[in-house]
Design a protein around this nucleic acid. Structure first.
Length: 520
RNA sequence: GCCCCCAUCGUCUAGUGGCCCAGGACGUCGGGUUCUCAGUCCGAAAACCGGGGUUCGACUCCCCGUGGGGGUACCA
């Protein structure tokens, strides 16, 4: 039976790098028909854990990574919150102490620091002298009489070595004598992460600890704790971290300013921020950006695109497979094929996956989802009038693969639904300021009024014959019509635009543009 | 300082001693198609960190550098 876990801290957001780690855990568990659980590392958390956890759980659900045990779903080993498991940690500390695997230490932080600095000055590895170690009640009392307070430290072995057979990295060796007597319990009685983590992994019967490589160096002390407590060891797999765009530095949420200097990152960010602004979402600070999963949900990316991209960030099936369904991912995932080197996050490639998945999405689903975006942006009223559906379907069809995320519909649909039109002034200047252009547009307006039925085929015929008669090229008139009727320089095919707009509205807009063109 | 991990095109990667004067994808550049944009089609440029070994033969194995990352906390 395989059991894996992901242990988020309730921070209020789900980090893209964390999702990658969670994904590999989830995939591995599903691959082997095991369980994936969520444990909440909230030992040093402040007041509102639930509020800070909600966006994280929401993100997992949105991405389709279900957990078999953990918050909200419970499970046989509940509770899954570390803050509620303190007595278990305390018991473990007692056991360590009783077994001689740990000791009460009365050194002050300054005294430890002094020893550490002395070792460094001599260029040798620091090893605590254990001068303030109390092993008997008598020495305890003596130290306490001096007003000293105790922490509990691990009494690490000082000879031999540890060999870990890491599922990603292979054999990794550590000399025990290089390992510190780490603190497992503070003077105030609270326990530290490593102890808690090991106890929980045992209690939850975790078989495979799959986590970021920053924990590789921490593994010896965890192994020591586990062995001292008589626990069986889980298998370990240390994943490379996710690096910054275009660099090998670890991706962190704190360096947003730096990432925004990366062209691709900035582009993806701006695109998302524009959509979010139209939706009235707060986009300031470091709560809304491409490092955070919520960004993608709000802007309207597809979970499958995110997952597929993340899957390939540090893992590959072979030399060519890029796109995989969930079932294929589960069927093929293996830790042996995880890369050892860090992989940098490339927003442009994520964008390419999004593009692919969006184009593959059935039109009905696109329309349904995009309608909610138009409503949220206030372009379409909340219970939509019944004619909106067919019209929106036409728009989505006409826009085609220009729509990369659901939120893109806002920019493509607003001129079809809104009465007033916002002109791209630059395009207007270019195409509608010259007298010839205005003259042609005025002439074509009359031609347009006679087109019947007002559909793509007839519109094209009308325009082509007009062009032939006038002895001009299509390009000489079509841009003027586009700007006049849609306000923009780019967009879906013009015949589609006119047809969707309808004759009346098309003529009105041309008239309006002619007035504006001649005003100035 | 000490310990550990890592190193193929700009990026994600394939490669487990000869199939590699290194393959795929994203991106980039050039061209075709087109009313714009998007797309699509065709084409191009683009990498084995450096130095020593081992071997008939190294991207692949070993050693030494160099570079990057992590740990060394009464953080997680």
């Amino acid at each position: 039976m395989v059991r894996t876990r992901f242990a988020p801290s309730p921070t209020g957001y789900l980090h893209i790098g964390g999702v990658r780690t969670a994904l590999f855990n989830w995939l591995f568990a599903r691959r082997h028909g095991g369980q994936f659980l969520l444990r909440i590392d909230d030992t040093d958390a402040q007041r509102n854990v639930e509020a800070a956890l909600a966006p994280i759980l929401h993100g997992f659900r949105w991405l389709g990574m279900d957990w078999d045990e953990g918050p909200e779903v419970g499970g046989p080993f509940a509770p899954y919150y570390q803050s509620q498991r303190l007595t278990g940690y305390q018991a473990a500390v007692e056991k360590l102490l009783a077994g001689g695997f740990a000791y009460r230490d009365y050194a002050t932080p300054d005294e430890i620091q002094a020893e550490r600095e002395a070792a460094q000055a001599e260029k040798r590895a620091f090893l605590y002298s254990r001068r303030w170690m109390a092993e008997t009640p008598a020495s305890q009392a003596a130290f306490e009489a001096q007003g000293r307070q105790a922490v509990v430290r691990l009494k690490m072995p000082r000879e031999g070595k540890l060999v870990i057979d890491d599922l990603v990295r292979g054999k990794v060796e550590f000399e025990w004598a290089r390992e510190q007597d780490h603190v497992v319990q503070r003077t105030d009685g609270t326990c530290l992460y490593h102890l808690a983590s090991v106890v929980d992994d045992f209690d939850f019967q975790i078989t495979h600890v799959i986590r970021a490589e920053e924990h590789l160096s921490n593994t010896p002390r965890q192994v020591f704790i586990a062995q001292s407590l008589g626990y069986p060891l889980p298998a370990y797999a240390h994943l490379p971290y996710v690096a910054e765009p275009g660099s090998k530095n670890k991706l962190s949420k704190r360096k947003l300013d730096k990432y925004l200097k990366n062209r691709d990152f900035a582009l993806v960010n701006e695109h998302g921020v524009a959509i979010a602004s139209a939706l009235g979402i707060e986009t300031s600070g470091d709560t809304f950006n491409p490092v955070i999963v919520d960004f993608y949900e709000q802007v309207g990316y597809l979970p499958d695109a995110i997952i597929n991209y993340l899957l390939l960030l540090g893992w590959s099936l072979d030399d060519k497979t890029e796109f995989m369904t969930r079932a294929q991912m589960i069927e093929n995932f293996s830790l042996e094929r995880v890369t050892k080197a860090p992989a940098s996050f490339d927003p442009k490639k994520l964008w390419a996956f999004e593009d692919h998945y969006m184009q593959a999405l059935p039109i009905k689903q696109k329309v349904a989802k995009m309608l909610t975006y138009l409503q949220r942006a206030g372009i379409v009223p909340a219970p939509p009038p019944c004619d909106v559906g067919p019209k929106l379907t036409r728009i989505v069809e006409a826009a085609g693969d220009r729509l990369k995320v659901f939120g893109d519909i806002i920019a493509y649909a607003d001129f079809f639904f809104r009465d007033e039109i916002a002109y791209d002034e630059k395009a207007f200047e270019k195409n509608l300021r010259k007298p010839e252009a205005v003259g042609l547009l005025a002439k074509f307006r009359e031609r347009l009024a006679a087109v019947e039925p007002f559909d793509g085929v007839h519109l094209e015929t009308a325009l082509q014959s007009f062009v032939a008669e006038q002895g001009i090229k299509t390009g000489d008139i079509i841009h003027a019509i586009r700007v006049a009727t849609t306000g923009k320089a780019v967009g879906p095919g013009l015949y589609d635009c006119l047809e969707i707009l309808g004759k009346q509205k098309s003529l009105e807009r041309i008239d309006q543009a002619l007035v504006k063109a001649q005003s100035k």
